[in-house]
Every structure is written in C-alpha cells, then in structure tokens.
Simulated assay, not measured.
Amino acid sequence: MQQRLKITSAGAWSSPETQEDVLELRAALIAQRHLSDVAEGKDTSYDVVELNLAHADLTYCRALQAQLEHAADGFKRTLKTLANLVALTAIIEGLAAFAGADFLSRENVSDLRVAHKDAISAFSGDLDAVMEAFGFTEYELNSVFARSDQTPYEGLLEVAKKSELTDNTFIRPTLLEARSLWKKYGRAKM
C-alpha cells in the first residue's frame, strides 16, 4: 500500500489484473481505516457501508472476469467490454478511498478518466446486445435513449411536453408569488 501505482497510459487501466489490484487496495484501505476508527471508539457506520460497497464491487468484477472464461466466443468481446466498464466505473466512484494515500498520481487519475470514457464508447456499440440478452423492454428501461420508434431528441421533447412543470397554471403563479414575497422581503430590510 506504500507504493505508487505503475500505470503509464490510459490503456493500461483496461488490464483486469490492474483493476482487481486497485479494487482490492480500495477495500483494504477502507478496512484499515475502519479498524483504526473502531480502536479509537469512533462511529464507523458510514465506513461499514463503504466497505460493503467496496467488497461488492470487487466481487462483481471478479465474477465478471470469471464468466469471460466460460463465455461463448460470440459473447466474449461484449462481456469483456461490460466487465471493463463495470470495473472502471467502480474505481472512479471509489476514488475517495484513496484520499490521503500516495497510491494514485494526478496523471493516474487523468488516465483513468480517459480510460473510463473510452470504455463507455466501446460499450455503447454493445448496448443493444446486452439489453436484449437481459430481456429488458423499452417500458422497463423507461429511457428516451432506449426507444426504437423515436430519436432521443423526440423522446426528450415528448417527456418535456408531458411534464407538469411545463404547465403555466403551476409555474407562473408560483413565480409571481415568489416575486411578491421577495419584494416584501426587500422592502422590510431597507
């Protein structure tokens, strides 16, 4: 835990071994902090939740990597991009665990963000296959990006039109009332 991560490019973050090492270290750092806080008699309820999430992330990433060995050749590439994206997302969301540790440099974090964006781009081509494999319907996804009969822009416009916030009978009176309250408040201060 005293050594700095030896990653020299964004592409190196896609290594399953590197991802597992970083996720293991995250869990170890949180566990170490938890144990020292328990010894000092501090409240550790947040650390327990954070440790649980770190352990779950590590377990999920290991399980996805294990499934790669058993996947059919037609699904291996898709599953690999999914596993890469899940691991990099878990690492990015858990960066706070490394605060105060001299494990990641600024360049490492910058490369991690580039690798994460690249993983999202790589996975976007496989999104339809994954959604179909899980059997999700457009209704279950409830996303304007998952509709086959509309572009995302058409879907966003439709959702905006149906929103109660676009109804002037709700917003306009609220704004006018707020404006009059601020005027009264402004006069009271003067």
Rank of each mutant, 00 (worst) to 15 (best):
I91V: 15
I120G: 08
Q65E: 13
G94M: 05
D111K: 08
A56W: 02
R113W: 09
L35R: 14
A101P: 03
A66H: 09
A28I: 08
A99F: 09
L88P: 04
I91Q: 01
L88M: 05
I92W: 00
Y46D: 11
A28S: 11
R106T: 10
L68E: 14
E24H: 13
V109H: 07
A72F: 06
S9R: 12
T44L: 06
L104S: 03
H55W: 03
F98D: 03
S36A: 09
L112S: 07
T18A: 13
Q19H: 14
N84H: 10
D37Y: 09
G41E: 03
K42N: 10
L5Y: 05
S121P: 02
C61D: 07
V49K: 12
V22P: 01
E107I: 07
S105I: 04
W13P: 09
A12W: 03
A54T: 00
A10M: 05
D118K: 15
A83Y: 06
F103P: 01
G125V: 00
I92H: 10
D43P: 04
L104C: 04
K6F: 06
N84P: 03
Y46F: 11
L35C: 03
A97T: 06
A71H: 09
L88T: 11
A31E: 13
Q32S: 11
D128L: 04
K42M: 08
G74W: 01
T18P: 02
S36D: 12
A71L: 06
H34T: 12
A122N: 00
D118F: 04
D102W: 02
Y60I: 05
A54F: 01
L79S: 01
T8L: 11
A63E: 12
D21V: 10
E93F: 12
G74M: 04
D57M: 00
L29D: 02
A119C: 03
